[in-house]
Simulated scan of single mutants.
Amino acid sequence: MANRTGTYVAFDGLGEADPTKSDFKYYATLQAWSASKNIQFSLINCHEKTYAVRDTSKRATLYARIQERLRASKNMLVILTSKTRYTGSVLSYEIEQAIDTYKIPLIIACPEFSSILYVDSHSEIWPKVLKDCINDTGIEAIHIPFAKVCILDAITRFYVNGEHLSSGKSYYNLETQTKWGLIQ
């Protein structure tokens, strides 16, 4: 097994060639946080560890690169929005592989929520593959808003050889989210 040091970032490209029309903008935010000298945020991104796969790549090549990246990943940050497709996106394949093949903890970040205290509150944006396995024994997932403090804490704590999550419906408690300023 490869050295698992990176965070695999997954989102739905929504079939768009223009990244401003898809959830790519949230990935770009992560890159900006990581690049900023004024922000204490460091992201080791598995997408940068293997050579790029273009949208025009054949599906077999794309899936091979995804598997290569997942093998090097300690966890997966999944960005979900109201635009995320229920089925038919590469995101569904990425989630399925992370859970079934690589046993990687999922950090499910939702930009449209300022806090998450009730995991089912955003279940309508879960892709089918996630919805089908979220209650399975053994899946580890934490549901968080897309906030730097949450993301940084989660990626540094919940990973293959790190702290384990109790279920597929874990979240930060009220006290923690209040301390972070997510809840007033």
Score class of each variant (00 low, 15 high):
36 S>N: 07
36 S>D: 12
37 K>V: 10
37 K>S: 15
37 K>I: 11
38 N>A: 12
38 N>I: 05
39 I>D: 11
40 Q>L: 06
40 Q>S: 14
41 F>P: 03
43 L>D: 13
43 L>S: 10
45 N>R: 05
46 C>L: 10
46 C>V: 06
46 C>Y: 04
47 H>Y: 07
47 H>G: 06
47 H>V: 02
47 H>N: 11
48 E>P: 05
49 K>F: 08
49 K>G: 08
50 T>A: 07
51 Y>M: 05
51 Y>W: 04
52 A>S: 10
52 A>L: 09
52 A>G: 08
52 A>E: 09
53 V>K: 04
53 V>F: 00
54 R>A: 14
54 R>M: 10
55 D>L: 09
58 K>T: 09
58 K>E: 14
58 K>I: 11
58 K>Q: 15
58 K>N: 13
59 R>E: 13
60 A>D: 15
60 A>Y: 06
61 T>V: 13
61 T>H: 15
62 L>D: 07
63 Y>H: 11
63 Y>F: 10
64 A>W: 05
64 A>H: 09
64 A>D: 12
65 R>F: 02
66 I>T: 01
67 Q>N: 15
67 Q>W: 08
68 E>A: 08
68 E>Y: 03
68 E>V: 00
69 R>N: 03
69 R>S: 05
70 L>A: 04
71 R>C: 12
71 R>V: 07
71 R>Y: 09
71 R>W: 07
72 A>L: 12
72 A>C: 06
72 A>Q: 09
72 A>R: 09
72 A>E: 14
73 S>M: 01
73 S>F: 03
75 N>I: 01
76 M>L: 09
78 V>W: 00
79 I>F: 01
